Simulated assay, not measured.
Amino acid sequence: MTQLNQMGSPQAGAVKRIETPAGTVEYAEDGTGPPVVLLHGLLMDHTVWDDVIPLLPKGFRYIRPVLPLGSHRIPLHEDADLSMDGMVGLVADVLDALDLRDVTLVHSDWGGSLFLTALGRDERVARMVILPCEAFENFPPGLPGKMATLAVRLPGGITLAARQLRIGWLRRLPILWGWMINKPVDNERMRRWTDPVLADPRIRRDVTKYATTSFDPAELVRKTEALRGFDGDVLVLWSPDNRVMPPAHGPRLAELAPRGRYAEIPGAAVLSMLDEPEAVAREIGAFLTATASRG
């Protein structure tokens, strides 16, 4: 079992900025060593990983970019391409801008970055950890995803949805966050995640660009199945009891990857890093140290 350690640095988690062709992207950084890039989903930011980061092993550089999915604080360029392919390209551009190599990329909730291989932009990625996320034809995912897509297409809908997320009993409804997490989300964290989209029309513009992308199910499946061409180690760390990302998708993803392995986080919903941070940190930590020891 992997030894889990506190990071211990007074500068841990400091937010920095990097320039990409689409605009300025913020990111948090902890530790030094081989890079581990942890992603997030719609209407949340890098702080979704706050409970896990202190539990991960030392000797790695943990980087958490803030994607333009509604909780980012710096709007991107007005002409930035934030369609699905544009968002996938932005992830690759962040890796390029930071000049990261031999990256372990951690996917969660938002599944677009699984398409880096399909788009030929995975040259900096050596390993993957895939937590419950969109995959195959499940874009947008389940009931919450479909309701979010509907909200952004209605006048004032995204503002209304963000305000509803700030009310505890509404937040727990299945059409909002009730199926995303089993534990309560504290009000301070949810205010942080919804402040930008409520305060700045340019943030609403950015997230609307992505959320109004038209998805072709056959194309989504094809791009997901391109993972057959990814030859790095892959850990699929699924929550089998969640009701948004199909349980069958976890083993299916692990089977796609030539060097894939499947593991489960029982008792967690989609956001397993919030429901079971110790278990998530233990599994990711063991994967990181095992693959690092193989060189």
Rank of each mutant, 00 (worst) to 15 (best):
L38E: 01
V91Y: 08
T20P: 03
I175M: 14
G229L: 12
G86D: 06
L119A: 07
Y62A: 11
V37Q: 04
V244A: 06
T24N: 04
D93M: 03
V152P: 00
I284N: 04
S83K: 03
R261C: 01
A263F: 00
C133Q: 02
A290E: 15
A161V: 06
W49Q: 05
V48P: 00
A22F: 08
L82C: 02
T291K: 09
W193Q: 04
R205F: 09
R73E: 12
V15T: 15
A151T: 00
S108P: 02
D81K: 05
D85G: 11
G250A: 09
K209G: 00
E29C: 14
L67W: 09
R243Y: 04
A199W: 03
R282F: 02
L82T: 02
P247E: 11
R17A: 14
A254K: 04
G120H: 11
V236F: 01
L274Q: 12
A22C: 02
T2W: 00
G70V: 10
Q6H: 12
V270W: 02
E219W: 02
L98W: 03
I203R: 06
R261G: 01
R202D: 11
V125T: 03
V94H: 00
G13N: 02
L114Y: 05
R172G: 10
G156P: 09
C133A: 15
L176P: 02
C133E: 09
S108M: 14
V280F: 05
V270E: 07
A254W: 04
S239W: 04
D122K: 08
P57R: 07
F139I: 12
R222D: 07
V91S: 02
L105P: 01
F115M: 11
D233Q: 14
A135N: 02
F60K: 09
A292T: 11
A268T: 06
R172L: 10
D200S: 10
V52I: 15
G120S: 07
V91W: 04
D50Y: 02
L274K: 09
